[in-house]
């Protein structure tokens, strides 16, 4: 008892990475979540499996498998993957929706072509999700997109989300629009507070 030297972890006879895509796709729907996780991870190396990973993300109930699916999709990001993930923003499945937002935030170039449409979607919830994506997107145009939202969107919650985003990523260019927004929602105390906060933070930077 006490400290003992354990055996070195043994290498597997056949590296799992060597499995072909067909075997991995079978494993992706296996009953065991550990098998599904491994398949989701290894399929990240196969560009042709991207849509299968999206399909599985939509059906997956295990959080740990879903996390690996997301990571593989982020690694394998493409406009096609981003387009598919944006469709999940309309899902009633909150974890799926949040997963899609989380993944899209990590693929700025892939999601950028779709953001303009999402930011003017007729559904205000979709516009809020889009603003949430833009607010943490590492994209040089993110502040500009958020500024357009506060300049034009009529929905107070969409604008509030954009102001919140601008408080993190906005620069002096946004100040005039933030001041103008104050007049559009003149009786809204929360908006007043959010705008003041954003202006103060931008000023500090």
């Amino acid at each position: 008892m006490g400290l003992v030297k354990g055996p070195p972890p043994a290498a597997e006879a056949v590296p799992l990475a060597a499995r072909d895509i067909d075997a991995l796709l079978i494993d992706l729907v296996a009953p065991d979540s550990g098998v599904r996780r491994h398949a989701a991870r290894d399929l990240g190396a196969h560009p042709d499996a991207a849509m299968a990973l999206c399909d599985r993300l939509q059906a997956e109930t295990s959080s740990s498998v879903r996390a690996v699916l997301l990571t593989s999709l982020i690694r394998r990001q493409s406009p096609a993957v981003a387009a598919r993930l944006t469709t999940f923003l309309r899902s009633d499945d909150t974890p799926l929706r949040n997963a899609a937002i989380e993944a899209l935030q990590e693929m700025p170039d892939a999601v950028a072509p779709y953001l303009q449409a999402l930011l003017v979607d007729p559904d205000s919830d979709i516009r809020i999700f889009a603003v949430n994506i833009v607010a943490t997107l590492r994209h040089r145009r993110a502040p500009e997109w958020l500024t357009v939202v506060i300049r034009s969107d009529a929905h107070v919650n969409v604008c509030a989300a954009a102001v919140d985003g601008l408080s993190e990523v906005g620069g002096p260019d946004a100040l005039a629009d933030l001041h103008a927004l104050r007049h559009r929602f003149a009786d809204n105390d929360f908006m007043e507070f959010a705008i003041d906060t954003a202006i103060r933070r931008i000023g500090q930077d």
Binding site: L3, K5, P7, P8, P9, P15, L16, A17
Partner: peptide
């Protein structure tokens, strides 16, 4: 006694083949 009680191994943490064991 301490040197002999620890198993040291070469592993690249981002290589799934190396970490899978």
């Amino acid at each position: 006694a301490l040197r002999g009680s620890i198993d040291f191994s070469l592993v690249n943490v981002i290589d799934p083949v190396q970490t899978r064991p």
